[in-house]
Structure formats: structure tokens, C-alpha cells
Amino acid sequence: MAAFTEAAHAVAHEPHDEVKHVRMNRLGLWLFFASDGLVFALLLSARFYMNGTDTAPDVKQWLGLIITSVLLISSYTAYRGETALHHGNVAHGRLMLMLTILLGVGFFAGVVMEWSIAEFTVSEGYGTSFFSMTGMHAAHVASGVLLLFLAWRKAGKGYYDGGGLKAYGVSGVVMYWHFVDVVWVFFYPALYLIK
């Protein structure tokens, strides 16, 4: 292979390079989603393996509906925030990120509430699925909130001024948020709706 011709064009810091960098980050992130998604998939399968298709009669349907809506809306605000920051509209972007954070915290609070009023225990079959699935998901939500908060702060310090590729960090965080949201789209029916 050592048949080399002239040296390639200099590599350092061409704009072309930054595009490649973002592409690499994006691929890395997607691979991470695939990998992390498998944990959720396994928990989901374990739920059906253990409990078949019965739901516990006493999950709080109204609460489930509320937190699900909250999470879905937060995906929309996250998307708005990302777009705004990409277009260099920092103020609006930050507002939207903050809204997302609040909605995320709201979701988390909903889960905590659900946990404290649940009429089944963790050692019952259904409780095992319910608590482990919502727990694992809530841990992801919490880390997502933390990441959104860091992005919000950095936006405030002017890191994303000018938008475009500079705001890639926000895209990464927001993609993560969507991922966590999509997971819930599978978990919600499995935990609440199936009869």
C-alpha cells in the first residue's frame, strides 16, 4: 500500500473539515442511540415476558396522559429552540430551551408523583416492569434536562452566536431529547394502554 503519491492537501482546519467533524459526531450519536435503545428494547421485552399483556388495573390513566403530553410538547419546543439557535436567534432559542427544561422537569415530577401514589409495589411482577422502565427512562430525562441546561447556559455566554455549525452542540442535545421522547412513545402504551 505504501505506494504514495504527493502529500494530500493540508488537513488542518479547513471549513470542509468542520463539516466532517459534525458528521462524525452525528454518526457517533446515532450509534449511541442504537446501543442505548437496545436497553429500552430489552426492558420492554422483559415486560411482556414477565407480565404477558395485562396491565395493572390501578395505574393512573390521567397522570399518564398528562406526562405523555408534556413530554411530546417538550420535543416541539426543543425543536424550535434548536432551529432558532441555528439561525442565530439566541434569545428565542434560549427561551425555547428553557421551556423544554421546564416541561422536562414537569415530566420528571409527574413520574415521581406516579411513583409515590402507585398502589402496587416494586416486588410485584407488574411493579417490577413499571418501576424499572419508568426509572430507567426518568434517569435519561434527568440527564437530558442537565444537558439542556448546560446548552442554555452556553447559549447565554455567546457560544452559539452566529448559529450554523457552531450550534451543533445544541443539535446533539436536542437529538438526545427526541430520542428519549421516542422511547416513551413505546413505553407509554406498554405500561398504560395495553389491556
Binding site: L38, V39, L43, A46, N51, V122, S123, G125, T128, S132
Partner: peptide, 26 residues
């Protein structure tokens, strides 16, 4: 991830009282 998930289930059964591997609970 499957390895992590499997061992996490064992861990939860030990420290959090879940029943992933208790026959009586499915």
C-alpha cells in the same frame, strides 16, 4: 447493552427489591 441490562436486572433484584427472577411474580 444486553449484558449491562442483564446484570442491572440482577442488581435491581438485589438492592431495589424487583422481581425479575422470582417465579411467583412472573
Amino acid at each position: 447493552q444486553a449484558l449491562a441490562a442483564a446484570l442491572l436486572m440482577v442488581l435491581l433484584d438485589r438492592i431495589a427489591g424487583t422481581s425479575f427472577f422470582r417465579q411467583a411474580e412472573g
